Computed example of a mutant assay.
Amino acid sequence: MSASNRVTRPITGRFVLIAILAFFSVVIGANLVMMRFAIMTLPGTEVDSAYRASLAYQREIIAARQQNERNWQVQVYIHRQSDGEAVLAIEARDRLGAPLAGMNFVARLERPVDRRADRAIDVSQANVGIYRGSASRVAVGQWDLVIEGDDDGRRMFLSKNRIVLN
């Protein structure tokens, strides 16, 4: 047989149906796989209720103004050790430079892209005006360091800074 004598099969309705079904099965399958990966890696929302967050916004503005009026001098040092432990030191002084004693500081490392990786830092007073804490299993990279200080249940200090831990 020569190339010019080849028998060609006609395109039938059955062939077209199978080709269309196969094409859309591949497209839908790929979409389902991508959707599954997107849902598994979705970190969630920043706030659970935007309405409640907007109501609390005015209180946050007032608290920030009060914090600025106190004019506290708070120095924070943090570094990540090779075993993955992050060590935090906070030095807190009032506007006159006197150490702040008896404060309850709470600190946490928040991953900017994934809430599931957040790490709480246990902070305790080591000396007058000096507070220390640590967190284990802290990965290398960018973090938001959030520090809150309260006195008798009333928040007196809030700080949120982007840091890089190596």
Score class of each variant (00 low, 15 high):
L42H: 07
G129R: 12
T12V: 04
I121G: 06
Y131Q: 03
I62S: 06
G29P: 00
I11L: 06
I163H: 03
Q81F: 03
G149S: 09
R119S: 09
N166K: 11
D118P: 04
A63K: 01
S159Q: 12
S49I: 04
I90E: 04
V140N: 15
A98P: 00
A63L: 06
V27L: 11
R116L: 09
R116F: 13
H79R: 15
N68A: 07
N71F: 11
M35T: 14
Q75S: 07
F23A: 12
A22S: 09
Q66F: 10
A89R: 05
R95C: 01
G13M: 03
I163D: 02
P10Y: 05
E91H: 05
A117E: 09
Q67N: 09
P10N: 15
L32Q: 14
S4E: 13
R65C: 02
V128C: 02
D118T: 10
T45E: 08
M1N: 03
V128D: 13
A98Q: 08
R80W: 01
V128L: 06
I20T: 11
D144E: 00
I18R: 10
S159Y: 13
E148M: 08
H79P: 02
R9I: 10
T41I: 05
R59E: 09
I11P: 04
R137T: 11
I39T: 11
V74D: 00
V16G: 02
L17Q: 11
T41M: 06
A64N: 13
N166R: 15
V27G: 12
V26L: 14
P10H: 10
G102W: 15
R14F: 11
